[in-house]
């Protein structure tokens, strides 16, 4: 067991986290869904792209981006999904229901931008 050098202070408990260790967003953050057009496989439906909303919660465990899994890549960098709330009036400007009606959807962090 390596001996601490004499005279050094107790090492700080601060540790450097790897990319993807920590969620990028937190509940309440204002976000926008990115606009881009992957082909062949995606899990962010077109109707939410470019729309603004709020992060409701971080989905508990870090996971592989399922868009990558579509072609058999089942390992790699983990990241977080977020449950995002988007008003239906934001999605559909002519929406006729209550202004409080909203969508909740899981979006992987590579699709979220600061609003």
């Amino acid at each position: 067991m390596p001996e601490p050098a004499s005279g050094t202070a107790t090492p700080s408990l601060h540790t450097v986290k790897s990319f993807g260790d920590q969620p990028v967003w937190k509940a309440g953050d204002a976000i926008r869904i990115s606009v881009r057009y992957p082909i062949a496989h995606y899990r962010v439906p077109r109707y939410i792209r470019g729309k603004r909303g709020l992060v409701e919660m971080v989905i508990a465990r870090a996971l592989v981006n399922n868009e990558e899994e579509g072609f058999g890549r089942n390992a790699g960098q983990l990241g977080y999904y977020y449950r995002v709330a988007i008003p239906l009036q934001e999605l559909w400007p002519d929406y006729v229901g209550s202004p409080n009606d909203n969508l909740r959807i899981e979006v992987f962090e590579t699709w979220l931008e600061k609003n």
Binding site: L88, G97, S98, D101, L103, I105, E106, V107, F108
Partner: peptide, 15 residues
Amino acid sequence: PDDVEIRVSDSTAVV
């Protein structure tokens, strides 16, 4: 009723 909020949850991943 209109004063009740509707929340539609669309599954896309692991939840």
